[in-house]
Amino acid sequence: MNTSAFINTITHTLPQKATYTWQTPSNIALVKYWGKSNPQIPKNTSISFTLNNCHTITTIEFIKKAPEEIKDQNIDFELYFEGKKKDEFKPKITEFFKRILTYCPYILEYNMTIRSKNSFPHSSGIASSASGMSAIAVCLMSLEKEINPNLSTDFFNKKASFLARLGSGSACRSIEGPIVIWGKHPKIKESSDLYGVKFPYKIHPIFEEYQDTILLVDKGEKQVSSTVGHNLMHEHPYAENRFIQANQNIENIITILEKGDIKAFINLVESEALTLHAMMLTSNPYFILIKPNTLKIINTIWAYRQEKNSNICFTLDAGANVHVLYPKNEKEEVEKLITDKLSKYCEKNHYICDNVGFGAKQL
């Protein structure tokens, strides 16, 4: 499927007014992507767990413009986040709407009011752009479905993922679940650089209800945005080897997820997390997003795993927060570890208990 498949050519009468509300999750990459080309094309394949409790709820109200308003070709919308008008968020959303105009020209014909709220702190390393942009994408697709009721569920999800990607790369992995792959890979026949696809192979039962507790080490804005970090990969001395490594790890994790090889899973996932941050440390300009408490958490997890022969492990996104991953059969013991030893390293002792989820749902 190429980009032309997503161009809307239906000329049915547009509804005068419509409102849609969707809840879309964040996701946590197991094999990371770091580095992309325009327009939002990943330099390597990535794979993620879709989360359940970390989500964005977005409502978009569409009100049809008068004919004379449409002629100016402006994209008109107001944006409210957590109940407050957020004009500072508008430039990013405006850029997103401009990118998708070819595929969703009907947005020019509406005044849109977007209201969003998160179940987790914004800009805290829990991929708020992933859940936020995917939520807008599925709301737009609900309008398109009303315009063209013949859209299949498969096409709806593919185009929603395609649109979300143009707002935030990782957002394309938040439409479905529990495990999603983004980026063309020879071992995954249906994979694409244009949208995420569900993991097509059997998943061992141990990974079906996997737990993810996010330790909120730092709930503030990151000093360096992911966009800036991705761009620094263009001249990075280790970039090409990193892309090769990531694509090999995709091949490895396919077997791991099928066989339930949890020790290999731990090794691969932690290595991927540290490699992501190694790319940041070796960029020019270089930067560090992890904090001292991030390292204290990692060392505590390693000590606990060795002492208890546990299957606990960690991963990191582009930030200081730590995702503690563990099978459901260790939930009670790991939650005690978090309460007794790890929460003290979190900002105000805050953490979020989450688990693998199944993607976007309309409310």
Rank of each mutant, 00 (worst) to 15 (best):
W34N: 09
L295V: 08
L79I: 11
G132K: 10
N74I: 00
S131W: 03
M233R: 09
G169F: 00
M141I: 08
H204I: 03
A160W: 03
D218I: 04
D193P: 05
P205R: 00
I266V: 09
Y210A: 07
E209C: 01
L79R: 00
C54F: 09
Y238Q: 13
N309H: 14
G132N: 11
A164L: 06
F49I: 12
S4E: 15
E347S: 07
N299R: 10
M279S: 06
G260S: 08
T58S: 15
L30M: 09
Y195H: 13
Q40C: 11
W22C: 06
C353P: 03
R99W: 01
A130I: 10
E335L: 14
M112Q: 13
K361G: 04
K92G: 00
W182R: 03
I288L: 15
V324F: 01
S124M: 02
Y238A: 08
T227K: 14
N157G: 04
L257H: 01
A360P: 09
E272H: 00
G260W: 06
K341I: 02
Y238C: 05
Q23E: 15
K263E: 15
C172Q: 05
I338C: 05
T153G: 04
Y110V: 01
K341V: 05
S116N: 08
K65L: 00
H236E: 11
L295Q: 08
N2P: 04
S4K: 14
E307P: 00
M112W: 07
H122A: 13
N349C: 07
C353E: 13
V322W: 02
L337F: 01
T19G: 06
D193S: 02
N355S: 14
N44K: 05
F97Q: 11
E330N: 11
L257F: 14
V197T: 15
K32V: 02
K64M: 10
G125Y: 05
F265K: 02
L342K: 02
L151I: 15
I10N: 15
T21F: 05
N111I: 02
T3L: 11
E69H: 07
E335Q: 15
A239Q: 09
S174P: 13
S225H: 07
H55F: 15
I75G: 04
L325S: 08
I60Q: 06
S26H: 05
E95R: 12
Y33P: 07
E221S: 13
T275V: 08
K43M: 14
L216N: 03
F207T: 04
F77C: 07
L101C: 11
V180S: 10
E333C: 01
M1W: 14
S124R: 03
A130D: 12
Y210L: 14
I266Q: 12
L51D: 04
S37M: 12
N247I: 09
G220Y: 08
V138I: 10
P237I: 01
I41E: 10
T102D: 15
V180Q: 06
L276Q: 07
Y103Q: 13
Y351R: 03
T227C: 01
L215W: 02
T24L: 04
N52D: 15
K331E: 15
T13K: 11
I288P: 02
V334M: 02
L316R: 08
L51S: 10
E335S: 12
N111R: 05
D212F: 07
T315Q: 03
P205Y: 05
I70Y: 00
E240I: 12
K85D: 04
V31H: 02
